[in-house]
Write a protein that binds this DNA or RNA. Sequence first.
RNA 1: GAAGUGAGCCAAGCGGUCGCGGCGGAUUGGCUGAGUCGCCCGGCAUGUCCGGCGACGCGGCGAUUUGCCGAGGAAAGUCCGGGCUUCAAAGGACAGGGUGGUGGGUAACUCCCACCGGUCGCGAGAUCAGGGAAAGUGCCACAGAAAAUAAACCGCCGCAUCGAAGUUGCGCCCGCGAGUUUGCUCGCGCGAAGGCUACGGUGCGGUAAGGGUGAAACGGUGCGGUAAGAGCGCACCAGCAGGCCGGGUGACCGGUCUGGCUCGGCAAACCCCACCCGAAGCAAGGCCAAGCAGAGAGCAAGUCGAGUCGCGCGAGCUUCGGUUCGCAACGUUCGAUGCGGCGCGGUUCGUGCCGGACGACUCUCGGGUCGGCUGCUUGAGGCGGCGAGCAAUCGCCGUCCCAGAGGAAUGACCGCUCACGACAAAACCCGGCUUACCGGCUCACUUCGGGG
RNA 2: GUGUCUUUGACCGAGCGGCAAUGGUGCCAGCCUUCCAAGCUGGUCAGGUGGGUUCGACUCCCACAAGACACU
Length: 142
Amino acid sequence: MTSPRHSLKFPKTVRVRSRLDFAAVYERGVRISDGCLSLIALPNDRATSRLGLAVSKRCGNAVQRNRLKRRLREVFRQSRAELPAGLDLVVQPRADTPIKLDVLRQSLVSLTRRAVKKLAGRSREPQTAVATNGDSTVGDES
RNA sequence: GAAGUGAGCCAAGCGGUCGCGGCGGAUUGGCUGAGUCGCCCGGCAUGUCCGGCGACGCGGCGAUUUGCCGAGGAAAGUCCGGGCUUCAAAGGACAGGGUGGUGGGUAACUCCCACCGGUCGCGAGAUCAGGGAAAGUGCCACAGAAAAUAAACCGCCGCAUCGAAGUUGCGCCCGCGAGUUUGCUCGCGCGAAGGCUACGGUGCGGUAAGGGUGAAACGGUGCGGUAAGAGCGCACCAGCAGGCCGGGUGACCGGUCUGGCUCGGCAAACCCCACCCGAAGCAAGGCCAAGCAGAGAGCAAGUCGAGUCGCGCGAGCUUCGGUUCGCAACGUUCGAUGCGGCGCGGUUCGUGCCGGACGACUCUCGGGUCGGCUGCUUGAGGCGGCGAGCAAUCGCCGUCCCAGAGGAAUGACCGCUCACGACAAAACCCGGCUUACCGGCUCACUUCGGGG
RNA sequence: GUGUCUUUGACCGAGCGGCAAUGGUGCCAGCCUUCCAAGCUGGUCAGGUGGGUUCGACUCCCACAAGACACU
């Protein structure tokens, strides 16, 4: 197996794509929100985390929504080293979400940390190793 | 120079790094598919079998690397039109819907171009659902006499009759005076006998000139005419209908004659006329894989024609075994009709498919799947040139390939420049329309002012 | 993506080619009550936007906007 998790690439395998996956995250995931984003997380038994986006029509017209989605993908791509592995993350922006890249990155990283804590507190044995800087513990279990 | 009108074009640019989608190339010790050859270890239904292992080249997926391409003028709204696909095909009539000056363009249009007519503007130009109201039905509030065959009312006029006043004034018949153009005019007086008129009412008749209104009032002005009036007559003007002549493919325009003299508006009210329109939509449709559970209903009775086999009847021949011909229509085959089911968006005509017996049939209800491939981008295509046409557009030649995703590809960072960047992103594809929009550019034209 | 429909005061609804646009809930004021509630009286506030047809449009036609529903 290769070790793609530190690369800055963004292939389709690190994205939540099927309807069933989305439904599972909505049904069993934990939801964490702050002022600009709402994040739903669920462990996925994989070596990598995956990103899914749900941008409603309240976030503007098609151009604004596309721009927001692209910036969220860029944030995820750049911060994969800082994020824990093995999670499905569905991100829902709020209606008044700013599109500044730094703000989105900060929000995404901190929300993911809080989601990991909440998952750890919810289940007796967390299926996901809590690894905030990513390159220490995650890859061994697969 | 200022103000404006119309048409068309562009949609910040350049470079670098990382990342994303598609297509192509190279590499690959990862995964996988089918094939060929080999080994004979395994199975038993001993084979051109099944299975296993190895080698070879080929393909797919993945990984690495590399090259090219990668949202719009509106991609939008979904308001029209077409292609394409499925419904067997897309037929008639009616219903329903749409369109509405003429000619052209187009695959087609509610689009475009040119022209005609109306309205607006000094003008360049703009704008108009712009057929029919003397086929019919309906509506026109309030106001007004009346809102649509014109008639009733007020008014005006004539005739008849009644009443009141009963005398003054007016007018006439009479006398005097003044003036005078000798026609007559003015002033005064008289009588009240008579008559007429003036007043009011009623009745009959004539009339449409007038009647504050209203969005709109049954032609306008003048002269004649009359008891009063009237297109009743005449002249001019407006309008309508018809005929003729000329121009134009045509809408229509110009001229002329005649007519009765005149007929309101609304059809984006019903309607009439002409023309057009089958339905659904790429989540259409096709293929593969996976997966589930079935249940109910129908299959009845014929008719006609043809074929010929078996049977039956008749006739001929006969070696008495049969054989040939004809009839009949019992069985059978085919066709038609009828019947039943379903369908052709609604109704109907017409028509298509299936059904002759328990099925590999038809119909109804129910159940399962929500994966992959395809459709999927070469097209009424872009650019350039030449030609036809006033133009929309068309023809020919050359040249180019220019997104094809699928929880859905264009983002981030850095540097430079400027006018500091609007509205906004494909989802089967085109042609239009409409709406949004920072600004910039080009061409043609109009009006006004100044200069030569 | 495709198809269908709606829009009338702060809210729910009716209506029609000619009004000062009707009703209820609400809100405001007054009366009643010792006070409140209920009741009574009066008032307030309107046809999504822009064009067109018509003498006249909330109504008819067109365009746009906002919203809702259905299919899948």
